[in-house]
Design a protein around this nucleic acid. Structure first.
Lengths: 143, 143
DNA sequence: CCGAAGAAATGAAATCATTACAAATTAGTT
DNA sequence: AACTAATTTGTAATGATTTCATTTCTTCGG
């Protein structure tokens, strides 16, 4: 699934490429660490000094609208993004703040809940919160 | 599960009662519509003019820490809250913004994903987004 | 190759949810 | 009543995100 390029990933999802959009897409594909808009901006800005934060926000919205990326609301502090659009869950460590990918046992997630008739599901997400292995081993009493 | 009172719901979860905490808890139990902190504040303020928004935020954090309520991050605009702490999923209609409860087929949600060893899960959530039945029927082309 | 029209990007200012903090109030205890 | 701790209050700060008017690119016909 990493066999595609940032450019193809844009065009395949109907996003007209630009230098900025390519940069954001490339960053997302190379950093599957669920970065926030601000993290992406700060990482890209040195090499692309004219990049504006608004453009990063606009691009991320476009990417999620077109299905080229996923928007995660697992962290109440800020939205973060994932270029891996295949079905998987996420785990937020409330100690270190890191968001981990978690594989799913079944891919047909909709089967899990009884969505009432007439409702049309467009996105689904499974979020876990807790303490990750690293924090648990290094951690204090509450871990 | 609605067989308890706001007062009991507080004390059973180790929350020392106060007029403000009771008011917030009572509002949550009577309005299972997943209100935000601001909605709760605006609803309670007329009858309790000295109530401050900070207290609402503090109380909601306390309630979720003690397990007397659930914090939902399904809406990226603001966190919202649910006094129903039994396992169930949520559906956000991106048209009207309403958050619906969705029953689960299986209650052992952790079985669903492969949480790596050493990770300790403290909360789990299943979120759906899409178009609710009401918006779909009233709705425009995209519904 | 040139210029118009539309699309995209920029940057500054506004918005809005949430938090920080210090002062005031209330509750609990001797 | 007096004292201490817990709670509440209100204002100010923070910080993510959006708005919007202006500027810069693209594209495309002539």
């Amino acid at each position: 699934m990493e066999a595609t390029t940032p450019l193809r990933n844009l065009t395949d999802h109907g996003v007209k490429p630009s230098a900025q959009r390519l940069a954001v897409m490339e960053y997302l594909m190379e950093h599957l660490t669920h970065p926030s808009a601000d993290e992406i901006y700060c990482a890209l800005h040195p090499a692309m000094p004219t990049l504006s934060k608004t453009t990063v926000y606009n691009t991320l919205r476009l990417l999620t609208e077109k299905g080229a990326a996923i928007q995660l609301t697992i962290d109440e502090r800020n939205v973060c993004f994932d270029a891996d659009t295949t079905p998987h869950a996420h785990f937020l460590c409330t100690r270190c703040g890191k968001v981990y990918d978690v594989p799913l046992r079944e891919t047909n997630l909709e089967r899990q809940a009884c969505i009432p008739p007439g409702f049309r599901t467009e996105q689904e997400a499974i979020y876990y919160r807790g303490c990750c292995a690293r924090c648990a081993s290094q951690g204090q009493a509450d871990c």
